[in-house]
Nucleic acid binder design. Structure first.
Lengths: 185, 185
DNA sequence: TCGGTGATGTCATAGTCTGACATCACCGAG
DNA sequence: CTCGGTGATGTCAGACTATGACATCACCGA
């Protein structure tokens, strides 16, 4: 056992989300989050660039992973659109691994302008990562961007459906259905 | 002549943009902006909700105006897409009325994540306002949203072209050309 | 055994944003 | 003409965010 409890970062991210869902993002202070995680405020800022960052953890790792999935799909002979959709499917899989987190996040983020803005920036980063990966595999830039944008549209639609009508379907299922609908266009 | 110089709000917005373009958004303080405008820091916060707000002034007025344009175009018998494009054309016209501001803004905003996020939120608000206006005129929700999104896509493409290649064309001209290209699809 | 390393704590401080209260030119009622 | 209301601003205090500088100390390899 180390000098401190391990995984301070994970505890901080979780505390940030739980407290934000409970009392609202803006009225929970970084000091409270840090205290809930058993560390100092200063330590919070060693793990996250700012308060909002704690609600969007592992940004860079995520982008690299999605790019990998898109590249792999492209190598496996998937169409451009299907490769982009594969990346979004993987995004759904990751979200499904922490359904509670996904649900809380989907409920908290849209209600706070600062977080909504950050989510949109995140989505653009995902679009850039996926379209960049496809471009590496020889897809023309315009086509790659369109595929990425379309896949992201699928993501937005699916998430909206998933939170509005919790009919028991998992997020990956909803995403798959939405992806099927797009392919049918 | 009043007790204070008139139009403090305008002076603040201008100072915020000029100083941000000069020294960077994050390194210009609200105190500096207020001083440049000849008022107190507290007064700044009476005119704008936060620092970023000063770079996106008159948000609500803008939304109402764009909705009006879309409604008017719809009443004049324009197609759904053309009505949405009319609103975006009006947006370009307003930007062209202050070309210096538009150019500075286009240069500063994308480089600061917080501002980029806010710009994306603003664009979504515009999309909602325009599609809402069209819905009021009997357009089906899905069609209205698609038209608004398409028009906003035209805006993004046109702005990108305009800043990248300052070939002398005005923003409304570039927007008109992009709109024409979309209609041709 | 010992020095380096890495994660954390402590302290200080600039900057953001808000609430509460004070000021005072202007303006309309009488 | 005077007076009280109004609205925009100033002043002050304080909570909160974020960052730099330095201290601490368990762990780990030489």
């Amino acid at each position: 056992m180390g000098r401190w409890e391990p995984n301070a970062r994970g505890r901080l991210a979780r505390a940030a989300l739980v407290l934000s869902a409970e009392h609202g993002y803006e009225s929970t202070t970084v000091a409270e989050i840090a205290a809930a995680a058993g560390v100092t405020e200063r330590t919070f800022y060693r793990h996250f660039t700012d308060k909002a960052d704690a609600l969007f953890p592992d940004h860079d790792v995520l982008l690299e992973r999605l790019a990998d999935v898109a590249r792999q799909a492209a190598d496996d002979g998937a169409s451009v659109l299907d490769a982009a959709l594969a990346a979004i499917g993987d995004l759904a899989t990751m979200a499904a691994a922490e359904p509670e987190r996904a649900a809380l996040s989907a409920r908290v983020v849209p209600t706070v302008p600062a977080l909504a803005g950050r989510e949109l920036v995140r989505q653009r980063a995902i679009a850039d990562a996926v379209s960049g990966a496809l471009t590496e595999r020889g897809v023309r830039a315009r086509e790659a961007r369109l595929a990425a944008e379309t896949a992201l549209g699928v993501w937005r639609v699916a998430v909206a459906e998933w939170v509005d009508a919790p009919d028991g379907r998992t997020l990956p299922e909803v995403v798959a259905a939405a992806a099927e609908a797009v392919r049918a266009l």
